[in-house]
């Protein structure tokens, strides 16, 4: 056997998973190969060093701080459980919007068309809220609040630069150390910059458990599955945390080929359409 093949056994030797026969053969090789012998010895030393890393004690006020934060979280949770609060707030927002539009039309001197015209306008606003995608409603989905739109875009750019530093998903350069700013520019350039697109297609051959896997994945993020069908999952993220969405998508892309494969920010609700590949139709 070639030396390169024995090198692959070093890891197994460190884990103690070589068979007796392999162990004898490996030891024999080490007697004649100083390179492998050195690597193996260093491997054992490193393993021992790591085993000796002392366990740190929790900071003294850790539990006290955590308790306070948990109480706060519990309080928020309890408030969130009262649906009437949400409904009241939602209703108030709709009234405020309708009222401000009414005032605006008055100030701008737009001729009033009476109650009927006002009603038409209200319906149009409601439609755009229900479906902010470009396909329906306003052309870019963000006409209602341009400031918010540009705010998102700025955040996105910074975030994309962050991603350039990440090398976990990149297998190319594999010295194991972080490469500063590597690929930052190219990744920023290649990422989709639309802030209103929120449909992802997951191409996967694993059809049986994919919905469950997505649901399980969602559990560890501050997100919730809103609807679940055979080929469509709708998720809602609780926080405007773009890096979290990014991490979620990285994890999601491990389940299949994700399209688009870059994060698109600006929507807290995302739809994942499951496109089954490689399955034979009955």
């Amino acid at each position: 056997m070639r030396c390169d093949n024995y090198k692959k056994w070093i890891n197994d030797a460190l884990d103690g998973t070589l068979s007796e026969k392999q162990k004898l053969e490996f030891e024999k090789h080490l007697d004649s190969c100083s390179d492998c012998a050195r690597e193996t010895e260093e491997g054992y030393k490193l393993k021992q060093l790591l085993r000796n890393v002392a366990e740190a004690e929790l900071p003294s006020d850790f539990k006290k701080k955590l308790h306070s934060r948990l109480l706060l979280a519990q309080q928020e949770e309890n408030e969130g459980r009262k649906p009437w609060i949400k409904w009241t707030a939602g209703l108030a927002a709709v009234f405020a919007l309708v009222f401000s539009i009414y005032k605006f039309l008055n100030i701008a001197g737009v001729p009033q068309r009476g109650n009927e015209g006002m009603y038409d306008y209200q319906i149009a606003v409601d439609d755009s809220k229900q479906d902010p995608s470009p396909a329906a409603g306003s052309p870019d989905g963000h006409d209602e609040n341009p400031e918010e739109y540009f705010g998102e875009a700025n955040y996105y750019t910074e975030d994309a630069e962050d991603n350039g530093d990440i090398s976990i998903e990149t297998e190319g350069i594999d010295n194991g150390l972080i490469s500063e700013g590597r690929n930052a520019e190219s990744e920023v350039e290649s990422e989709v910059k639309s802030a209103d697109y929120h449909l992802y297609i997951l191409h996967t051959a694993d059809t049986d458990d994919i919905i469950n896997q997505i649901t399980e994945l969602t559990d560890i993020f501050s997100a919730e599955v809103i609807t679940k069908q055979a080929d469509l999952v709708t998720l809602k993220f609780y926080r405007e945390d773009h890096t979290e969405l990014n991490t979620f998508l990285v994890r999601l892309s491990e389940l299949g080929r994700l399209e688009p494969d870059k994060p698109i920010y600006g929507a807290d609700t995302i739809n994942i359409h499951i496109e089954r590949i490689g399955t034979v139709e009955p």
Binding site: D162, N163, I166, E180, E244
Partner: peptide, 14 residues
């Protein structure tokens, strides 16, 4: 996930 998020935010690329 939280550690990875932290890493991305903190730009610990030095």
């Amino acid at each position: 996930n939280i550690c990875i998020d932290h890493y991305r935010k903190s730009k610990v690329g030095i």
